[in-house]
């Protein structure tokens, strides 16, 4: 049975596309056949983050309008087997996405795929509503910052009422919090909401904490999802989050400030002395 995941946040720029890309790579590299769909019609960007922008021929809206088949529009990922990308259209037509059209595409994908990751646009307009409508579970991407937390709470309200599952009384979709751009140093200084603060306010299960990291910009610069950079803190944090999503118990990392190299040196000496 296919599982549909929506990556959402309300607020823009918090890391939805970065998360969608890394999550899709993570699931596919576990052997699950995965499709990742860009719902941000008019502002296509998932293709850039996935590094396939020059291979886009047909898009989501072409498929909905019957101008191309799904197989023609799906782009096979260069690095990860079992991973396919369905890019957004660059049309300015706001009504290009329809409920029936999205349903048909998801139905067809559902016949052969294990996971479908829906990269939601920011805001609460049609694209965002359709991205969440058919979802079985939601990853709510949040920055430890007031406007992002508030918008995430708004999205949680929509997720509990404006999805197919909710409307048909089939129970709530599962909600997961992913805290991104987390800076343990600023938390320690008292200038950033802590994980415990955000957890207390939003009160949904925590899927992962992605530290603020140079690796994320490097990854988007080069068009390779950050999870592929297995040396990086952010990449490892995404790998952990995917494992947790699949039900594994993984301890949380990168919640403490990295200690200074001098400190580490001294603690090493102390250990030696004992």
């Amino acid at each position: 049975m296919v599982k549909i995941i929506v990556v959402t946040s309300g607020k823009g720029g918090v890391g939805k596309t970065t998360t969608s890309a890394s999550f899709a790579v993570g699931l596919a590299s576990r052997g699950y056949k995965t499709a990742v769909i860009d719902f941000d019609i008019g502002l296509r960007n998932l293709d850039l983050i996935m590094g396939c922008e020059r291979r886009v021929v047909y898009d989501f809206v072409n498929v909905i309008r019957g101008e191309a088949t799904l197989n023609q529009a799906l782009i096979r990922d260069k690095h990860t087997k079992e991973l396919f990308i369905l890019p957004a259209s660059q049309t300015r037509d706001k009504d290009a996405l329809t409920l029936e059209g999205v349903a048909a595409v998801l139905d067809e994908l559902g016949k052969t795929f294990d996971y479908i990751v829906c990269d939601s646009p920011a805001g609460i307009e049609r694209g965002a509503q359709l991205a969440m409508y058919f979802a079985d579970s939601a990853i709510v991407v949040t920055n430890p910052e007031v406007s992002s937390v508030r918008d995430s709470d708004r999205m949680l309200g929509l997720l509990s009422s404006k999805t197919k599952r909710a409307e048909e009384g089939k129970g709530q979709i599962s909600e997961h919090l992913l805290l991104t751009r987390y800076s343990p140093k600023r938390v320690a200084n008292g200038d950033m909401l802590s994980l415990a603060d955000v957890n207390e306010i939003l009160a949904i299960p925590l899927l992962g904490v992605i530290p603020e990291s140079q690796a994320v910009l490097r990854a988007s610069n080069s068009g390779v999802p950050v999870i592929v950079d297995s040396e990086s803190d952010a990449g490892q944090a995404y790998t952990d989050a995917v494992a947790r999503y699949l039900g594994e118990e993984v301890p949380f990392r990168f919640l403490q400030e990295k200690s200074h190299w001098l400190k580490r040196l001294f603690s090493f000496k102390e250990k030696e002395a004992v």
Partner: peptide, 24 residues
């Protein structure tokens, strides 16, 4: 030391979110 601003952030969020939840 400057005021720890995260505390204000948390308090303000708790108030506005609980208000918005009842409206929702």
């Amino acid at each position: 030391r400057p005021q720890e601003s995260a505390k204000f952030a948390k308090e303000r969020l708790q108030i506005i979110i609980s208000h918005e939840r009842t409206e929702r």
